[in-house]
Design a protein around this nucleic acid. Structure first.
Length: 293
DNA sequence: AAGGCGGGGTG
DNA sequence: CACCCAGCCTT
């Protein structure tokens, strides 16, 4: 019953997202990696541009890594760009350019974990496999367990239930629909239970507690708003951004772009950041100059 | 089992 | 501000 309700709703309300129109494993791979911890709305414009620049596996595998990192601007988690290209290169080298179809082999590619391997097997090759992401987890927990997300069943258990509920031959629609419901209706905050197609069979709905009262207004602490600004993560992002514009920079050129009062005494600090980026394959250093690889 | 990794949007 | 977002990798 749950599956029937969910799939009927999905057939009516699914967004026409570009990666849903494709079964090309390369295009699916690109979309899934971009969507790791990144919202659909932010991915959409980058996705089209990326595929225009790197239309197929061959183009991506053979591109300068610097170009791939540039195409990743605005998406965050820049290591994903490096791993995506390495995955493309590995498919070319180890699989003769033909994507492996099973989850275990997909899982061996860099940057492809349990979720993405399942998603490619399902969304590109239309296999009846189950996997977990933040939307599927929340939807299944609410529907099958109840409203309290604090008492989380083991991941394995939710996956088993998903596999049991999955209508044979419709894995693609089942997983897409779970994720779509989580994105549009069964949201983390303020879910739209009134519009929910599965409310009749949802444990969280039948035992739903009234919506929490609005939080008391916090005092706006203007002074201490920034914890992220100036952090290591932020600095790494600034370095990559600078190198997207300027192919090569010396440390003494780079430093002032991160820290207005940069001096020679800061070089060890800056070098540590650069070494970290180098280890991630995001920059290359030669002599005293830094650049995208 | 934790922490690191980007960046922007939302309540 | 705290939280959220189609996770993955290293330690």
């Amino acid at each position: 019953m749950l599956a029937n309700l969910l799939l009927a709703w999905f057939a009516q309300h699914a967004r026409a997202l570009p990666w849903r129109q494709s079964r090309d494993p390369y295009q699916i791979l690109v979309s899934e990696v971009m969507l790791q911890q990144t919202q659909v709305d932010r991915v959409l414009p980058k996705y089209a541009a990326f595929l225009a620049t790197f239309p197929n596996l061959h183009a991506l595998a053979n591109a300068p890594t610097a170009e791939v990192i540039r195409a990743w601007a605005g998406l965050g988690y820049n290591r994903r760009a490096v791993n995506l290209q390495r995955a493309a290169q590995q498919v070319m080298a180890q699989y003769d350019g033909q994507f492996p179809r099973n989850v275990a082999e997909l899982r061996s590619l860099p940057g492809i974990g349990p979720y993405t391997a399942g998603a490619i097997a399902c969304f590109a090759f239309e296999q009846d496999v189950v996997f977990m992401d933040t939307n599927i987890r929340r939807v299944l927990q609410r529907a099958l367990v109840g409203p309290d997300l604090q008492v989380a069943p083991p991941e394995r258990q939710l996956l088993e239930q998903s596999a049991t509920l999955l209508p044979s031959g419709q894995g693609w629609a089942w997983n897409q629909a779970l994720m779509e419901l989580g994105a549009l209706i069964c949201t983390a905050r303020n879910p739209s239970c009134a519009q929910c197609p599965i409310q009749r069979v949802c444990r969280a709905y039948s035992t739903a507690t009234p919506p929490a009262l609005p939080r008391p207004l916090r005092r706006v602490a203007e002074g201490q708003r920034e914890a992220y600004h100036g952090s290591r993560r932020w600095l790494r992002g600034r370095i990559i951004d600078a190198l997207r514009e300027q192919p090569q920079l010396s440390l003494s050129q780079l430093g002032p772009r991160l820290k207005p009062d940069y001096s020679a005494a800061d070089e060890a600090w800056l070098r540590d950041l650069v070494v970290g980026l180098e280890r991630d394959g995001l920059v290359a250093m030669q002599e005293d100059r830094v650049g995208l690889p």
